[in-house]
Each structure stands twice: as structure tokens, then as C-alpha cells.
Design a protein around this nucleic acid. Structure first.
Length: 494
DNA sequence: AATAGAATCAACCGCTTGGTC
DNA sequence: CGACCAAGCGGTTGATTCTAT
């Protein structure tokens, strides 16, 4: 491996790539740029062992190292700090990266915090290189199940936000939460500026099958309890804007007749929920090329040992993880045109941006009715006709189950807290140089920044006293179709 | 074996954020 | 409140290595 050679042979690097002295400092000496030598590494390591992380600009003053603080911090963070994992990403890590990217976009540092031993730079490089292949191969960024899972999570998140609005926001006037004749407690998005956001802030209607008023609590657990107790297929979450990014997966002709859609309120095709569940539980992901098929046999085919190859369109990669969003095979030319007109490269700037872009594109491409047309709510009398809206999809108990599946630390907990939990000490050996120092130094990195403290202290913990991060796949998930090698099987571009 | 292109990765750069005065 | 500074973050660059021809 190239990187190993480089790591092992700093001297060789020195010869191959001349360090550059740039600018000048107080002493008239320039700061060095370029690859680090092992001697410089030793100096920096020694410094950190003595003084802890942080205060990087003082490294040069105190050690004479001709490196700027930035460079020192980077070198330490990416190469010298203890418990860094070296080598290729495991299949589990790859999957985690994909999941996290679906969740956070290009938030490399955040992703790194959820991948113990990995650096943001590493993850960024990994993603950028692999993702290039996907884009060049005209394949979507995410395995289907992961994206769907993320959309599901986002929906749930939005739902919780709206519960918050319903209960605590002063923006919501009493008359705007009134039971409709069906006993629904409606929220009229037209009364709020953020309904313009369409897909980012979908409105919700909480329906109680018991026709009883129900005070929705903003607490996620309470919400889940509410969902379980009150949803008998009557939970309605209308999607206010047809430009919702979910619609990207919905052929236009089907949108005209939403009742025909095998879709639930989360914008997830019901059949997909099963496969999503299967995916989340570690089962191979069914080829998406058949997702929109009305042929139920195909949907049930996932229970057969039908490999992706059998189901995949001929142009698809034989790799199962190549069954991806956007690969819906469908007879709708209109639909296909839409897909063609959205080059994947345009969706790669970042998750939110890309979604916004998608929404814009879709809005302009589809000649939808006025997006507010489905809402004839009258805040004064509380009447709403959301049940008539074509954008209203109903969620059933089985869908609810999916939501509940999301109710784990990774998906529903406060992100910072879940981050901490997931980073709970993992198994990583300390380098000898680190252990050879004072016993407590390894964990006594007195970072001047609390943020650094939390991650650093977690980083150095031994595995013996902890469970692996939750995001890491269990062995039972090991047969999930995304293998480390799958990226490498991407067709090359010449 | 030679070579070109692709892949990989370390490092840098510019910008943003947060804290302090 | 604004200036300044330290640190962090994400994008980009360029050197090195790998791989296909």
C-alpha cells in the first residue's frame, strides 16, 4: 500500500518531496511545509505528551518545530494521535459511512466522531474517491435501503419537530389546532411561513382512531407511545408540497392518482418498508428496479433467494448494493425523463443542498397543481379537508413499526447524546510510544477545548470496558450486501 | 518492461465558529 | 459590539502508488 510505505518511510518522502520553507516568523525563520518527517513527528508527539492537545501555535515556540499550529494539529489528528485505525475501511465502516453521509451530508468531522479511529480526512477521501466512481458510472450515491431509511428518519424527525410546534410554539394559535369533523387534530401549514419549505417541514395531522382529543407530547417516547396506542391505520401525515423530494421516486402519472400508490405517509413505498426492514436487519437489499412494479410477486420475491443479479436490469452492476435510489425501472417515459434531467453530479454537493436542488428541479419540471390546493383548511372554523388531499398518504400499523424501529439511540436520540453513546469506548490498541509514556498520559490529554476533550477521552478508552459503537454492524449484519469490495467492482471510466 | 491514467492520501488553504478582551 | 485569535472544518491540490494496456 502506498500509504504504508509513506508512513514507514518518512526519509524516503523527504527525498522525494522537498519540504518548503515559507514566509517567516518572529525569528526570521520560515515555516516548513510539505510532508512530515519522523523526527518532526517525534517532536510533536513529545510535545503533546507533555502538554496535551490544543494550543497548537505554541508548539513551534516551545519545540522549535518549524510547523504552523494548523499543520501540527492536522498532523496529530490525522496521523499521530492514539487509537487511529490504519488500513482500509471495513465493510461495516463503509456501510456506516454511507449511512452517515445520508444522514449528515458532507459533515466529515461529525462522521469521524461516529467512526472511532477514523479521521475526517480519511472519511472525506474515501467518500470523494468512491463516490466519484459511482457518479461516473451514473449510479446514485446511496444504496436504496440506506437512503430510504434516512428519509424515514427525516420524516420522523420532522414529525417530532411538529409535535413541538403543536405543543410549545407560540406561532401556533389555538384555532390552528382544532379537531376536524373526523376528530383529527389538524395543523394548517398555510398559517406558517415555513410551510413554504415544503419537504423540509411537512405538515402533520394526527388522527386518533378513538376520535378522542389527544394531547400530543413533544417527547419522542411519548410520541411513540401515542403512535402505538392510537394508530390503527389512521395516522395521517399529509405531504404538503408535491415538490417533496419523495416525489422524486414517484412517477408523475402515479401522482395524478395517488390512491394507486403503494405509499405510506412517509413517502416510502409500502413494499419497500419490508425490504427496508430486511436491509436494516442485515438482509440483502432487493433490487430497486422492481420497486415500482405493481407485481406483488416481485416484491415478495425478496424472500426467495433471488439474487440481485436475477432481478437487476441488465445494465445494472451485479453487485447487490448497486440496487440504488433512482434506479427504479419504470415504464413511464415522463418519469425517466425526469430522472435523466437530474444528473447525479448535481446532487452531490451535500445532502440538504442536493435535496433542495432536487426539489427545485422537480417543482419546475412537474406541472403540479398549486401546492396548497390540498389544504382548504379554515383556521377560523377548524375545518379541514386534508383527508381529500391527494398528497395525504396513510400510515398503517406496519409502517408504524418502521417508525418504532427508528426509535433507537442512533436515529431518535438527541444527536449529541447518541453520538456520545455510540462512541462509547471501542477496541483500539494504543501505540507503543503512547503507552510507554506516563500511565495516565494516554487518557489525560488536557485539551483546552471541551469538544476535543470528549472525543479524545473516548478515543483512548479500551475496548475491555465497553461495547462497540452502535453504528458498527453486528455479525448478524455481516451478510448485508454492501461489501468492502463492492466499490472496487464499480466499472472504471476510461 | 514501459507507460499512461486512475486511485489514494497527506497536506494545505480559506473560511467559519467560538471564546476572550 | 467589534477586533482578535485559536481551533475546527470542508474543499482542493499535488505527490506517490497502483493498475491496466
Amino acid at each position: 500500500m502506498a500509504r504504508n510505505n509513506r508512513d514507514e518511510g518518512a526519509a524516503a518522502v523527504e527525498g522525494a518531496r522537498e519540504p518548503v520553507m515559507v514566509g517567516g516568523n518572529q525569528g526570521g525563520q520560515g515555516l516548513k511545509k510539505g510532508p512530515w518527517t519522523s523526527a518532526e513527528d517525534a517532536i510533536l508527539i513529545e510535545y503533546v505528551k507533555k502538554h496535551g492537545e490544543g494550543n497548537w501555535n505554541s508548539v513551534q515556540r516551545n519545540t522549535g518545530l518549524m510547523r504552523c499550529g494548523k499543520s501540527c494539529r492536522l498532523r496529530w489528528a490525522n496521523h499521530l494521535r492514539p487509537n487511529l485505525k490504519k488500513g482500509a475501511f471495513t465493510a461495516e465502516e463503509e456501510r456506516t459511512i454511507i449511512q452517515l453521509h445520508a444522514k449528515y451530508g458532507n459533515k466529515w468531522a461529525r462522521m469521524a466522531s461516529l467512526l472511532p479511529g477514523r479521521t475526517d480526512n480519511e472519511i472525506k477521501n474515501y467518500w470523494n474517491t468512491r463516490i466519484k466512481r459511482r457518479l461516473r458510472a451514473n449510479l446514485p450515491l446511496y444504496p436504496e435501503g440506506i437512503r430510504r431509511a434516512e428519509l424515514l428518519h427525516q420524516r420522523r424527525h420532522q414529525l417530532l419537530h411538529h409535535q413541538h410546534y403543536l405543543t410549545s410554539s407560540s406561532l401556533l394559535q389555538p384555532q390552528q389546532v382544532l379537531p376536524n369533523p373526523q376528530g383529527r387534530y389538524g395543523f394548517n401549514p398555510s398559517h406558517h411561513s415555513f410551510h413554504q419549505a415544503g419537504f423540509t417541514m411537512p405538515s402533520i395531522n394526527v388522527l386518533s382512531s378513538t376520535q378522542q382529543p389527544y394531547m400530543v407530547h413533544s417527547d419522542p417516547n411519548h410520541l411513540n407511545e401515542f403512535l402505538l396506542n392510537n394508530l390503527n391505520g389512521n395516522f395521517s401525515v399529509p405531504i404538503p408540497s408535491p415538490s417533496s423530494f419523495f416525489d422524486q421516486s414517484i412517477p408523475a402519472h402515479l401522482l395524478q392518482n395517488p390512491n394507486s400508490l403503494p405509499v405510506n405517509s412517509l413517502g416510502i413505498f409500502n413494499d419497500d418498508l419490508t425490504s427496508l426492514t430486511a436491509m436494516l436487519m442485515g438482509a440483502p437489499v432487493e433490487d430497486s428496479g422492481n420497486k415500482l412494479s405493481t407485481n406483488k410477486k416481485l416484491s415478495s420475491g425478496k424472500n426467495q433467494s433471488t439474487g440481485p443479479t436475477a432481478l437487476a436490469p441488465s445494465s445494472s452492476s451485479p453487485n447487490s448494493d448497486d440496487c440504488l435510489i433512482g434506479a427504479h425501472s419504470n415504464n413511464s417515459d415522463e418519469y425517466n425523463d425526469i430522472k435523466r434531467e437530474q444528473p447525479l453530479a448535481n446532487r452531490n454537493s451535500g445532502l440538504l443542498d442536493s435535496l433542495l436542488e432536487e426539489a427545485k428541479v422537480l417543482t419546475s419540471q412537474k406541472n403540479f397543481k398549486d401546492e396548497d390546493s390540498s389544504y382548504t383548511a379554515d383556521g377560523a372554523n377548524g375545518k379541514q379537508t386534508v383527508e381529500d388531499t391527494p398528497d395525504e398518504f396513510c400510515i398503517g400499523p406496519e409502517d408504524l413499526e418502521e417508525i418504532m424501529k427508528m426509535d433507537n439511540p442512533f436515529y431518535s436520540m438527541d444527536e449529541e447524546l447518541s453520538s456520545l453513546l455510540m462512541n462509547f469506548p471501542s477496541a483500539m490498541p494504543k501505540p507503543e510510544w503512547y503507552l510507554s509514556g506516563s500511565n495516565n498520559d494516554a487518557t489525560g490529554q488536557s485539551s483546552s477545548r471541551a469538544k476535543e476533550n470528549s472525543s479524545a477521552s473516548l478515543d483512548v478508552c479500551n475496548a475491555d470496558d465497553a461495547t462497540p459503537p452502535r453504528v458498527m454492524a453486528t455479525s448478524s449484519e455481516s451478510d448485508w450486501s454492501l461489501k468492502a469490495s463492492c466499490w472496487k467492482n464499480m466499472p472504471g471510466i476510461h
